[in-house]
Design a protein around this nucleic acid. Sequence first.
DNA 1: TATAAAGCCTCCTGCGACTGGAAGGTCAAG
DNA 2: CTTGACCTTCCAGTCGCAGGAGGCTTTATA
Lengths: 133, 133
Amino acid sequence: MHIGAAEQASGLPAKTIRYYEDIGLLIPARQQNGYRDYGRTDVHKLAFLKRARGLGFSIEDCRALMSLYGDRNRASADGKALAHTHLHRIEAKIAELEGLRGVLAHLVDACHGDARPDCPILDDLAGLLEGQA
Amino acid sequence: MHIGAAEQASGLPAKTIRYYEDIGLLIPARQQNGYRDYGRTDVHKLAFLKRARGLGFSIEDCRALMSLYGDRNRASADGKALAHTHLHRIEAKIAELEGLRGVLAHLVDACHGDARPDCPILDDLAGLLEGQA
DNA sequence: TATAAAGCCTCCTGCGACTGGAAGGTCAAG
DNA sequence: CTTGACCTTCCAGTCGCAGGAGGCTTTATA
C-alpha cells in the first residue's frame, strides 16, 4: 500500500506519515522503486498515533504508547501512568487558562468600548492599577 | 540604563528583550559603545509587554496593543475588541481541553492499572471499540 | 506510442516565541 | 594588568509538522 492509500486509510497527512518515519515512530517497508509500502499493521499503528495525538499526547508519549501497544507482556499500569500524567498536564493547563479567562472577562466587562481613549484593559497592561495604589 | 538593569526592572529576560528588538517591538537607543540604552518609558513598555504576554496575547496582538498604548487618540473599543477576540480563543481552548479531559478521565478510570496487559486506554487508541462494534 | 498528469521521492525552509551557547568587545575593580 | 562581569552579534535548537522545489516513476489518455 502506497503512502497515499495509507493517508486515506489512517487519516494522517502523507507529510505527517513521512515525518513519523523521520523520527523513527513508524518505519515502513520499501518497494523496489523506493516507494514506501504500508501494510495493515502499519495503518493500524498510524491510526493509533492519530488518535493518541488527537488526545494531546506528545510525540514522546506516543513513542512510549506505541511500545506498550506492541508489547504482549505489558502492564496496564504503564499505560495508565502515561494517561494519568497527561491528564494532570491537561488539568493544569485548563486551570491556567481559566485564570486568564477570569482576568480577561473582568477587563472586557470593565471597558466601555467606545470612541473614548480611556480603557481599563490598556491601563491594566500598563500597570496603572499598581501605580495608583 | 543597560539591558541588565532593564531586565531587573521589567522582569523580562535580557534574551527576550533583545528578541523583541529583533522583531521590532521595542527598539531602544544605543550608547556610543553600542550598548542598548533603556529609558523609563522603555521599561514601562517592557513591563506592558510582559503583562500582555502573561495574559496569553500573541506577539502580533502585543504589537497592536503597544500601538494603542502609545496612541492618545485611541478608541477603547479597539482594545476591547482585541481582548474580546483573545478571550474567545481562550474559551475555545478551554472547551477543547475539557473534552480531552473527559475522555482521558474516563479511560484512566476504566483501566485497572496492574500488571496484566489488558488496558482500555491502549484499546481505545488502537480503535478496538470501533472494531468490536 | 507519445505525452500528460498524478503520485512518489528527498531535501530545505519556515512557523511562534523564545532559549542556550560560542566568540569576541567593553568596563570597573583590585 | 589582569580578572571577571557585562555587553555585543550570530547560529542552532525547541515542537510538530506544512509548504514547496526539483526530480523520479507510474498510470491514464489521445
